[in-house]
Simulated assay, not measured.
Amino acid sequence: MAKARIDAAAGAAAVQTARADFEGASRDIRATAVRYLLQALADGAEGNSVEVRVPPFGAVQCIEGPGHTRGTPPNVVEMDARTWIELATGHLSWADGRASARISASGQRADLSGHVPVRL
């Protein structure tokens, strides 16, 4: 069974609301925004060599290259929801997120700089 996709209109509205007032947005709005942006990343960077995690809302595998099937993947990028929304929408650069330790990345392929901001 295929995973349900977030409708573009609903996703874009959630992203806009979460960007405008992250703290004031409901948990559901923040979750939808995160998942929609992860969906867009996976659509634009198909593959399974890097796992991008935004706990507690979601994770996707993306970027072409050697994949993994069991256990912890060798290439992992992890960040909180606010950081992901800022990164995915172009309000935070990959370099600044890494330099400020807002983004954790491990593995040779764990670099999203060529994939953010995501295309909506």
Rank of each mutant, 00 (worst) to 15 (best):
I85V: 15
L37R: 07
A31F: 05
A25D: 00
G90Y: 08
V76G: 06
G107R: 06
E78D: 13
P55K: 07
H91K: 15
A110N: 01
P55R: 14
A110I: 10
L112Y: 00
M79C: 15
N48V: 10
T83K: 01
I29F: 00
A18N: 05
T17Y: 00
P74R: 09
L120D: 07
V60D: 03
I85G: 00
A13P: 02
A105I: 02
V77G: 02
V60H: 04
E23Q: 09
R102C: 05
M1V: 11
K3S: 12
S100M: 04
Q61T: 14
D7G: 09
I103E: 04
G107D: 14
V54Y: 01
A13D: 14
Q39R: 09
G97W: 03
M1E: 08
R19F: 07
A12F: 00
G44S: 12
R109F: 06
A42W: 01
R70S: 09
A12D: 12
L41G: 02
S26T: 15
A45D: 08
G90A: 08
T72L: 13
L120A: 15
E78M: 15
W94Y: 13
L41F: 10
R82T: 01
P56Q: 06
G58C: 13
I6F: 07
D43V: 05
G44F: 04
I85C: 06
G11F: 09
N75H: 15
L92Q: 03
R109M: 14
A59D: 05
R119G: 12
Q108E: 15
I103F: 05
Q39N: 08
R119N: 12
W94L: 10
S100P: 02
G58Y: 05
A42M: 10
E64L: 11
A8G: 00
R98G: 03
A59M: 12
E23D: 14
D96P: 04
R35M: 13
R19T: 09
A12M: 02
A14S: 14
S93Y: 09
N75E: 08
P66M: 10
A31H: 04
F22E: 06
S104M: 14
V50N: 01
S26L: 00
P56I: 11
G47A: 13
D80V: 09
D28H: 06
L38T: 05
T32Y: 00
A99C: 04
F22H: 07
G58P: 03
D111T: 08
Q61M: 12
G65Q: 10
P66W: 11
